[in-house]
């Protein structure tokens, strides 16, 4: 098709067919309990960091599952690791370990000079 240079902001749809699942697969391998999340938001509501800033644990999990790694790698720095999320999770997900694994993998990807 001829390029008419129309303004196109680009689709913001979640593209399920092409998403970056490197982090997700890594987390699932070492913390399989993550698979049972039902996005109830209990973690976010109780979160000490979320109480102080717009940090959202549930969204961290959601972004992980959708491969939105870039957003995630910045947001996750706000976590204070207090463990309340793990204590309220109705699905017994080891959320602290999920966070630790994400941090670990991100730092590994960074040192391997791979885009995060």
């Amino acid at each position: 098709m001829e390029d008419f240079s129309f303004l196109n902001p680009g689709s913001r749809q979640i593209d399920f067919d092409n998403f970056d699942d490197r982090l997700l697969l890594y987390v699932l391998e070492y913390e399989p309990s993550f698979v049972t999340c039902i996005s109830c938001g209990g973690c976010t509501a109780t979160c000490s960091a979320g109480n102080l800033t717009n940090f959202n644990v549930r969204k961290i999990g959601l972004w992980l599952r959708r491969g939105e790694t870039e957003k995630l790698s910045q947001e996750i720095e706000k976590c204070m690791f207090c463990g309340k999320c793990t204590l309220v999770c109705p699905r017994d997900i080891n959320i602290r370990n999920v966070i630790l694994l994400i941090k670990k993998r991100i730092s590994e990807l960074k040192t391997e000079n791979q885009p995060v």
Binding site: N8, P9, G10, S11, R12, Q13
Partner: peptide, 9 residues
């Protein structure tokens, strides 16, 4: 279904 939602916040 929204066409606008695909492109805008």
């Amino acid at each position: 279904i929204c066409p606008a939602a695909e492109y805008f916040e």
